[in-house]
């Protein structure tokens, strides 16, 4: 457990340091959500109707933003090769790095979401579901994203390729996440959508590290 914790703390420190980009995901999320009323108009009734989908799409894009650096910096300076021969299996390395990615990009969104929900006129009874759906759904974004990051780690300027590959994999999470909030906003029962969202996250936590590690091994060959 010690090496995993050390790696996690190292990744968090790197992300939080100036230029690490931990705050950028959140800033991007805020900007995205701010742009929407400016583009669509200040009609709060309309905004409250589209708020669930809007917040979830913004969360998807924010998660994507820092994904291409997940393994690339470590590959460039050779850290990844050291990690690959360390006591920690590469699967654990991928899982820890995905966790660090979630802590620095997903978690801030979960905490900031209620405020943004408020500004978009999301009904009060949907607010807890918004927080719950982001908390249950965004880990999947980081862990699926790790697979994409592992696949494109050797590609120069792979950011666009990464988005094209990873966004289709995000769709089930998006659908169930946004549905959870939308159903709650309409005073319907969101439990089913929420459980399915959680199931996708559990599946991603299971598949993600192994697929990402397989991709990294291929790229390190």
């Amino acid at each position: 457990m010690r090496p995993a914790l050390a790696l996690l703390l190292r990744d968090l420190r790197l992300a939080l340091r100036a230029g690490g980009g931990a705050g950028l995901g959140l800033a991007f999320f805020l900007t995205c959500v701010l742009l929407m009323p400016l583009g669509i108009g200040p009609d709060l009734a309309m905004l409250s109707r589209i708020a669930p989908g809007l917040l979830w799409v913004a969360a998807l894009l924010a998660a994507l933003l820092s994904l291409d650096r997940l393994f690339q910096a470590d590959l460039e300076d050779g850290t990844l090769e050291v990690l690959a021969v360390s006591a920690l299996p590469l699967e654990a390395v991928a899982a820890v790095k995905a966790l660090a990615h979630w802590l620095t990009t997903g978690l801030p969104l979960v905490l900031a979401a209620p405020v943004l929900g408020l500004t978009l006129g999301l009904p009060a009874q949907a607010q807890p579901w918004l927080v719950a759906s982001l908390a249950a759904g965004t880990p999947a974004l980081s862990f699926i994203g790790a697979v994409g990051a592992g696949l494109t780690v050797g590609v120069r300027r792979g950011g666009l390729l990464l988005s094209v590959m990873v966004l289709p994999l995000y769709l089930p999470s998006l659908i169930f996440g946004a549905r959870t909030v939308a159903l709650a906003a309409q005073e319907l029962d969101p439990a089913r959508a929420f459980l399915l969202l959680g199931a996708i996250t559990v599946l991603s936590l299971g598949i993600g590290p192994f697929a990402a590690a397989a991709a990294l091994r291929i790229n390190l060959r």
């Binding site: 994999l169 659908i175 169930f176 291929i218």
Partner: peptide, 28 residues
């Protein structure tokens, strides 16, 4: 060979999420 390996991993992972998307979209 690397491209074949990596695209195979993508196809494997993608097939899981393609099936999930199919059912998610039905739900939607």
């Amino acid at each position: 060979d690397k491209a074949a390996d990596l695209t195979s991993v993508l196809a494997m992972v993608g097939s899981v999420f393609a099936v999930l998307s199919r059912y998610a979209v039905n739900f939607w």
